[in-house]
Design a protein around this nucleic acid. Structure first.
Length: 118
DNA sequence: CAACTGACCGACG
DNA sequence: ACGTCGGCCAGTT
């Protein structure tokens, strides 16, 4: 085997995995950075998940990044959209109520991959 | 090429 | 109860 050719079996980056999980979030439900990180085995990787969401626009396929909020149900990523309200509007279009940049009934709408995909 | 930065979260004092 | 710090990854300057 040549040292230059044979590379890691799965060049699948962490970002790639995050995007894939994000696409699994059902319409009308929301998940969190920490939950996704934990599901992928990166307990301290919540931050990285956030970075992955920011890089979501570079992904090949559409990533419903608006369904990912922080652990408080707060729309932390709203400032990264075309307009500061684009994220909220996208959520409301799915039947999710948002007040004060916060998901209403977040606890009920919370979709945890570790639980749902178990 | 090396350093900086950026959608977070939990632990500790 | 509040402020601070460490841990994680990849793209850009």
């Amino acid at each position: 085997m040549k040292p230059t050719d044979q590379n890691p079996p799965e060049p699948r980056n962490f970002f790639q995995d995050v995007h894939e999980v994000a696409r699994l979030i059902p319409r009308g439900r929301v998940s969190t950075y920490g939950a996704i990180a934990h599901y992928l085995g990166a307990r301290h990787g919540a931050r990285t998940v956030g970075y992955a969401m920011m890089a979501a626009h570079t992904a090949d396929q559409f990533v419903p990044a608006h369904r990912v909020v922080n652990r408080l149900g707060h729309l932390t990523g709203r400032l990264h959209y075309a307009t500061p309200f684009a994220m909220q509007e996208a959520l409301e279009a799915e039947g999710i109520r948002v007040e004060e940049d916060r998901v209403v009934d977040f606890a009920k709408l919370f979709w945890d991959p570790s639980t749902e995909l178990a």
